[in-house]
Design a protein around this nucleic acid. Structure first.
Lengths: 201, 201
DNA sequence: GTCTATACTGAGATAGAC
DNA sequence: GTCTATCTCAGTATAGAC
């Protein structure tokens, strides 16, 4: 009698965990991990904080569930496993950026936790360090393929392309969070690809 | 009998305030504003938290003192008031980045608080929004002058140059904080200027 | 100007009834 | 599974002695 529906007494534990993870992603994105409270998260689900802790033993465990969930969703959206044509690589990244722009909450979660993770003794420091290393590798692979196909601009190395793309993307998202009217993340990214590649995006 | 020396009973209140502001900048840079405690700051100065509050009425007031101090130091270093030659503009920004690289604490303070300020009800949200708007204007002025002198790369607008420079700079600093071995902020910035301008940096 | 003592608040987490 | 009650801890801030 699991997951018979979205509401009601027979909703099941799995569905409740889903609700909690979603609410936690919201709250951590808005307030960060340390400032985001279990009370706030529980309140959005409509339960007490102690009930929340019945499902996730501690705040830390909940954070890890939120991050794991984000990873699996991203992987699902990107299909890194499938081979991407070198010429299509920038366009694939633009699509991801557009998808994020449509879900502002995701940007907050990622950008706020990323920066917070650079502070001392932060529980997700390792996660973001690993994740950024992985992303750098993925980007490097993509731009390497582009270089071989002669699709990078003159004097731009794959390494340079990977690092600068990651930096400008994160930076643009932070600025957008700070002042949504001041910048368009997708436009900045498009301009960047126009400068570092030879393909249209 | 103010500021007769750095230590001793006649050190004076002004010097004590300086020590506190410096320690606070350190702590806020390492831990962020919300997670950084007055106890920690006071401890680094060698006094009790209640003594700290004798000098600065509240944590919020202390934060504002730290930010004001940073602004005045930056202004001093940049000399925006003096006219900068269009061709020298990128080099001036590189110098600032190099100066930051030599004082890692400054990067943490700025980058961590910037990201934290995007969270709800953060006391320095207005400060960073205003400051980013000002910086965008300053950058725009610099790149406008470069455009008039024909020093921007083809198809790069001053607006685009200003936004992308700000984004890539912030993003590179965040990545550096996360994993200092993975990226060199100055090199990324140099590469960016090589792509968007026609001057050597 | 600095300390000790204390008030107050809100956090995360646990125990146990239902 | 959820609640109430409670514990423990750390934080900011205040009062008052020295």
């Amino acid at each position: 009698m699991t997951t018979t529906g979205k509401r009601g007494p027979y909703r099941g534990t799995a569905a409740r965990r889903r609700e909690i993870v979603d609410a936690a992603a919201e709250v951590f994105g808005e307030s960060g991990y340390r400032a985001g409270s279990l009370k706030d998260i529980a309140g959005r689900v409509g339960i007490d904080a102690s009930s929340l802790l019945h499902h996730f033993g501690s705040k830390h465990v909940l954070l890890e569930a939120v991050l794991a969930d984000k990873v699996s969703r991203d992987a699902q959206a990107l299909h890194w496993d499938e081979e991407i044509e070198p010429a299509e690589f920038p366009a694939a990244l633009i699509r991801l950026a557009e998808r994020n722009a449509a879900n502002p909450g995701v940007i907050g979660l990622y950008t706020v936790l990323l920066a917070e993770s650079t502070t001392v003794d932060h529980p997700s420091a390792d996660f973001f360090r690993d994740r950024h290393a992985t992303t750098r590798r993925d980007f490097l692979r993509g731009f390497d393929a582009m270089a071989e196909a002669g699709l990078l601009a003159e004097d731009v190395t794959p390494q340079e392309a990977a690092l600068s793309t990651l930096a400008i993307w994160d930076g643009a998202q932070t600025q957008w969070l700070l002042d949504p009217g001041a910048i368009e993340v997708v436009a900045v990214l498009r301009g960047h690809f126009r400068r570092i590649t030879r393909v249209e995006v």
